[in-house]
Amino acid sequence: MNIFRLAGDMTHLASVLVLLLKIHTIKSCAGVSLKTQELYAIVFATRYLDILTSFVSIYNTLMKLIFLGSSFSIVWYMKYHKTVRRTYDRDQDTFRHWFLMLPCLLLALLIHEKFTFFEVLWTFSLYLEAVAILPQLVLLQRTRNIDNLTGQYIFLLGGYRGFYILNWIYRYFTEPHYVHWITWIAGLVQTLLYADFFYYYFLSWKNNKKLQLPA
């Protein structure tokens, strides 16, 4: 464990807690894409399949449980909670996210580190996580105005993978044979997808204006 990875995990934890807190306290998920939340639940479900078989540390298992629990409860709130579900604008959140999953699965079957059931699904979860934010970014373009909490959620979510990139650089230079091209490229693509959001988020913060994404 290094400071970059810890910062990444804490930023990631903060992003899901911000979203869960927003939905739980104001009982609204306006501006939040259910499609992205469903993709994240699938990302964690396929990435943490080994939670029962391979034990790395208490921290590792605890965080896996938190990420699994929070992502599935966010999906539950948005789909089934009597008050929250009414605030979900389904006719705006129309990204065909199942079309994202198929290419990720095909790519995982083609490019992976080992051709085993767990490893292919783990690689699938990496590719899927890289694109999981797309429905949310599309929704933002459509709804144009976003509330602070949703903006903070996306900012933290994008930031965590940025910290992970620093972690991979650190590990590359400090651990012999630590080379994971697939993880690195997927992580880089993921972070780059947030680039324009970060740009407009920073502009709105600098000019102290409401965050507006261009149409």
Partner: peptide, 10 residues
């Protein structure tokens, strides 16, 4: 790289 190290990250 040994098995566990492969996926010791979240």
């Amino acid at each position: 790289n040994n098995e566990a190290a492969a996926h010791d990250e979240l």
